[in-house]
Amino acid sequence: MKKQGKIITGVVSSAAVVGLVAWGIGFAGAASSNEWKLPGDLVAGPAIAEANPSTGTAVKTDRFDNVQKKIGEKAGLVDEQTNKSYFTIEVTKTQLLNRCTSRVGNQQLAPTRSRFLVLDVKATLAASVSEQVGGSTRDLFMPLVAEAFSVTTSSGTPDRNVTSETAWGCFDDSVLLPPVVNPGQSVTGKVVLDVDATTGKVAYDPEDNGGWSWPYGG
């Protein structure tokens, strides 16, 4: 249960949150801030519970502190007091494509590396999130852009360079995941990455210090 103490005292200092499934990665800074900032001690990194407080199952992490998930398995942050999640994210499907249809001109776009890794993602952020982390609801969000994802190859090599211009151009906006999820919203859609490895793990890790990972390929 490494780092858990930091999170408990840092993120939700006054709230009696005990069991975060993973850490609260991406809450926005204050309204006056010019930069997107993590609140307080969250900068220190993720807190990981020993067990999922919702299901009781053991929480496994990889070497990069990403909580390991199965495809379709929900990850998130839980308020122990209410046992309710205030942020959840799940990769419901992964697909490797040799090409995709551009949203402009309908031409076929090819990956600049080996494959397009297309993720179907669902994310929710509770309207009550400001109660957990403070700040104005207007300024709170979680980023969902491709840049918030990374992959780890089966050999364990991390790769954060998984976006490209052609991946950006894939699919119509209507099927793509919005760039952010705001308090009170639940969003779904596709994220397109441009990867070298055809098997491995894809992580939602917006601050490059640990998040959640799901397997793909293989």
Binding site: N34, E35, W36, E147, A148
Partner: peptide, 12 residues
Amino acid sequence: GGSKISKYLSMH
């Protein structure tokens, strides 16, 4: 750049 994503991306 949109304000939220700009904040996120310009952070690092």
